[in-house]
Computed example of a mutant assay.
Amino acid sequence: MEPHPPASRRARPLSAPAAVRAVVLAVAVALLAGCGVRLESPPPSEPVPDATELVRRTAVADALLVAERAGSTTTSPDLPAPVLDELGRIAQDAHAHARELGGEYRSGIEEPDEEAEPSAEPTATGPATPEAVVVTLVDAAARNRAAASSTSGGDLGRLLASVSAAQTVAATRLAALSGIPTPQAPSPQVPEPSQEEALPATPTPSASEPGSVETTAPGDGPVRPPQGMTAADYRALVASEDGARYALEVRAARADGDVRARLLDRSRAHGQRAEAWARLGAVDGTDQDPRRVAYQVPADDDAVLVRTLERGLAVDYATLVGTTAPGSRGVLVDLLVDGALTLDAWGQAPSPFPGMPELDG
């Protein structure tokens, strides 16, 4: 048998204070080690925006630039009161556009040196004049028209189309009040059925290469038939357009002079669109063709009748922008813009969101 070690060399149990000190030391070491790991982790970085977010941010920046330019122009003492009132309305609507689009993006990540970073706020670099505001509105409207047609989100596309229509109306009104040449408006043309094949979709900004947003307006290129419309959608459009044709034709027969010419011109436009939608929807001359010989015409005066018809069609086209496929909504966007311009020409108070009655309040 091996001899027992001397008592002085035998392991002794730790006293209570010593045990507590050991535990505290172990916990401290573990915490320090954990802190070391966190300190070595890379700081959070800004996420790369996808195509939809890039489109949204661009629309917000455009709206805020319009608001800034219009607001700064209202300080000019030399402008007549109607121009100042219109500039104030434009600025107010532009702020509403920015809010409804979601406002400026804020990641919550603090920059290392915020003072050294350029400001992301839109800045009016040109002179504060009505001409500068008109140019800003026209540019913003063109970008939103293109984005409304191409963005993947239907709800965002509908909103962008409505904002573009409002900006186009604002540019037209301000130009007329200021004696500036009227900006060119889109000329909608419903495509023929034969155009449905082999037309490339409108490109969208790449999520991996954020940068400029496509600014070519839908009406500037080949007209692509809307993809995703149902047979019921086609029949509803044909009936609405043909009903508008008939009502305005009846009223034109009772009018004279300039009013008669304007009513007839608009009646012909609606009749052509009804025919084109009937052909595109393959209901022309079939049992499914909803067009009738006569329709009931409301007993409103001419201007009220036109506004009632155009508001209904604007809602129809805005709704279809939200339900059809990206890259094929161009004609629907242009028809919404055209309807908003017609409403303004017939005395409708400007709306910040044409075709979206739920936001009119």
Rank of each mutant, 00 (worst) to 15 (best):
P186D: 06
P191M: 14
T123Y: 15
A18I: 04
A170H: 06
G103W: 14
L263H: 05
V24H: 04
G221W: 01
A142P: 11
D242A: 10
G355K: 00
V315R: 03
L177D: 06
L84M: 13
D139F: 03
T58E: 15
G157L: 10
T216K: 00
S150W: 00
A239S: 11
V315S: 07
A120N: 11
R262W: 01
A349P: 13
I109K: 01
A171E: 11
R235Q: 14
A11F: 07
P188I: 13
F353M: 15
R268T: 11
V29N: 04
L79G: 12
V133M: 14
R99W: 11
I180M: 07
E275I: 07
L336I: 04
V163A: 12
S267Q: 05
D316M: 13
A147W: 11
A81P: 15
R89E: 14
R89F: 06
R143Y: 08
E358I: 07
L199Q: 03
D113M: 09
A63Y: 04
A120R: 05
H4K: 12
A26F: 05
L336F: 01
A349S: 15
A294P: 05
E2V: 14
T172D: 01
A252D: 10
R273K: 08
L64G: 03
V135S: 11
A294N: 14
S152F: 14
V27G: 01
A33D: 13
A340S: 04
G102Y: 04
L31F: 03
V213K: 00
L65K: 14
A314M: 13
R291E: 09
T75S: 14
V259I: 10
R251K: 04
C35Q: 09
R173L: 02
T172L: 06
R173D: 06
A269N: 06
T168E: 14
V134E: 03
M356F: 03
G157R: 13
V48W: 03
E310D: 10
A96Y: 08
A70H: 01
T204Y: 00
P183C: 05
S15F: 05
P188Q: 06
A325W: 09
P181S: 12
R10I: 03
P188R: 09
R56T: 02
P357W: 10
M229A: 10
D113I: 12
T215F: 04
V213R: 00
R291C: 11
G285V: 04
A345V: 04
A28P: 09
Q227G: 10
S152G: 08
V133F: 10
E40G: 15
A30W: 04
E117C: 03
R292S: 14
P357Q: 08
R57W: 09
V55M: 10
A63S: 12
D360W: 07
E114N: 11
A198G: 07
A232W: 04
T129Q: 12
D334Y: 11
R173C: 02
S240C: 09
D50F: 05
G211I: 06
I109T: 12
E117M: 13
E117T: 07
V163N: 11
P191Y: 13
E53G: 05
E249Y: 00
G126Q: 13
